[in-house]
């Protein structure tokens, strides 16, 4: 299965990753090889087969909708790369 450099760059955009040209070229080659494993799946007769999302079947798991204590704000904010007293700070996203 061939994957082009252009495809890699497009996918990198979706995944929010920057790639240099030669990096994208190398990755195109490597991803093509890896997708080769998946290419084997094309040999399978999967007509009428149901997909499995989880190997162990569990019905919807519910819990009571009750109020529970949350984490102190300072503790959650403590890991933020940039923050003020109450918020995580990010660059302006609306004009």
């Amino acid at each position: 299965m061939e994957i082009t450099k252009e495809t890699v760059l497009k996918v990198a955009g979706l995944a929010k990753l920057n790639l240099a040209e030669e990096e994208a070229q190398r990755l195109a080659h490597e991803m093509g090889k890896i997708v080769g494993f998946a290419g084997k799946l094309a040999e399978m007769d999967l007509e009428g087969v149901q997909p499995t999302t989880h190997a162990v079947k569990l019905e919807n798991v519910f819990r009571a909708d009750e109020m529970q204590p949350s984490y102190p704000r300072e503790e959650i904010l403590a890991n933020g790369p940039e923050r003020d007293e109450a918020c995580f700070v990010v660059p302006k996203v609306v004009e």
Binding site: I3, T7, V8, V11, A12, L14, A15, L17, L27, M31, I34, V35, A38, L41, A42, M44, L46, V49, Q50, P51, T52, T53, A55
Partner: peptide, 26 residues
């Protein structure tokens, strides 16, 4: 991440992710 984003992206989902989930059943 790139591989995963690729197999989930429009046009490839059926060929890869969905197929893999079916293979999983077998």
């Amino acid at each position: 991440i790139l591989l995963g984003t690729y197999t989930l992206s429009a046009g490839y989902f059926d060929a890869y992710y969905l197929r893999a989930q079916k293979a999983r059943t077998l």
